Amino acid sequence: MKTGLSKVFPDAEYDLVPMADGGEGTVQSLVDATQGQLINVSVTGPLGNKVTAKYGMLGDGKTAAIEMAQASGIQYVNDQTHNPLITTTYGTGEMILDALDHGAKEIILGIGGSATNDGGAGMAQAIGVHLQSSDGEELGFGGGQLDKLNRIDVSDVDPRIAQTKILIASDVTNPLIGETGSSAVFGPQKGATPQMVKVLDANLAHYAAVIKRDLGKDLAHAPGAGAAGGLGAGLMAFTKSEMGKGVDIVIQFTHLKERARDADFVFTGEGGIDSQTQYGKTPFGVALATKEVAPHAPVIVLSGNIGDGLDVLYRPNAIDAIFPTATSAKSLEKAIADAASDIEMVSENIGRLIAAMRRN
């Protein structure tokens, strides 16, 4: 965008703010925006094997940014291996502990793209929670084990957990159980058959009942508890956490509002834009935030694909204009390969339009 606009306005002042909405790319955006660093760590993947995950330490040296998908994401399974009865969030808990080892006092945790449906049980076990069966044995991995849960013991939880604020970056408001719960809504895309969905939902209901009995927290129908296969519930139960929209958290940590206060124009973008963009996606979040501090600065969105229902985005104090970035009819693979040059060309043309209007 800057390269294209600079061909028309070479002397303009540009402030580049990497943005994301809690999904893939959030860690990189926050690291880039704050001059932080990426850290690689070996953790337990969703199938129990070791995987290499990365997370970010932000420039303040005390805030970590973690994407749970790096440890427990759906990219680690395929059509032959996906099975939410056995997949675990244990590696996500290991990432949390590693961040604490690197000095984190606060954690931003994006919880999209999971391969799991274990209610965050694996994460809990990694940080020291004991989930025990009636014979005192520790539960195995996966949502298929939760029906065996008899007792929760938090006496061995890493003491740093209670001192660490975790900001859960998620746009999901689904409860843990029921027709709109994590198993019913998200289980099938993780490989759950209709019978598996019934088992998983019943197991999570039992899990929630034991949490309520042993910890005094009623999470079965809490908004967002069903995020990432119930990881939302696990974080609410066993950590000092609060849930917020991913884009709002990124806006906070990048200081977008302060940086946009004197803007004349705001440019942002998304791979695909449609009516769903109003529900916590990057362009709409950017528009609402910047309009608060620079109400007269047009918000211009560039998007690789434009879908239906854009009228809801053109409301007052929101998005002003949307432009497709593809410069010709082309395949998805070609569009991705050409993305940088296409965005540059479209940005230049928008700049030329702005310049022409100013001359008139």
Rank of each mutant, 00 (worst) to 15 (best):
A192I: 10
A222M: 12
G232K: 04
D135E: 14
P223S: 08
P175Q: 04
P175R: 04
G119Q: 10
I211Y: 00
I152A: 09
G234Y: 03
E179M: 09
S182V: 08
A124I: 01
D153K: 06
Q125D: 01
G140F: 03
L200E: 02
G119A: 10
T193A: 13
S183E: 10
A205P: 00
L176E: 03
S133M: 02
G142S: 12
G136A: 07
N174D: 10
K217I: 10
A237V: 03
D171V: 03
G234M: 03
K245A: 14
Q132A: 01
T173G: 00
D147L: 07
Y207H: 02
N117W: 09
Q195I: 10
S134G: 13
M123W: 04
L204R: 02
L219M: 08
A126M: 01
K212Y: 03
V199Y: 00
G216P: 05
H130T: 04
S183W: 10
M196H: 15
K240W: 00
H130M: 02
D153V: 06
Q145T: 14
Q163A: 15
E242R: 10
I211A: 01
I152P: 09
I177Y: 01
G140I: 02
L167D: 12
G187A: 06
L235E: 02
V210R: 14
A184H: 15
G144D: 09
A169V: 09
L200M: 04
G229L: 13
M123V: 04
N174T: 11
L167T: 05
M243T: 13
M236S: 08
A169R: 08
K240F: 02
D248N: 14
L231I: 11
V197P: 09
R151L: 13
F238K: 04
L204K: 04
L149I: 11
T164K: 07
A225L: 03
T193Y: 12
S183I: 11
K148W: 07
R151T: 14
G120S: 11
K217D: 06
V247Y: 09
K148Y: 07
G191Y: 12
D201A: 00
R151S: 12
A202K: 03
P194C: 06
A222Q: 13
A222D: 00
E179A: 15
P188Y: 13
G234N: 04
K245G: 09
S170M: 07
G143S: 03
K165F: 11
G128S: 05
Q163Y: 07
N150Q: 14
H130P: 00
D156N: 15
M196V: 01
L167F: 11
G142W: 10
M196E: 03
M243V: 13
E179H: 09
D218P: 13
Q132C: 00
P175I: 05
D171I: 03
G230W: 05
I177H: 02
T193Q: 12
Q125R: 14
A192L: 09
D153Q: 06
V154P: 04
A208G: 11
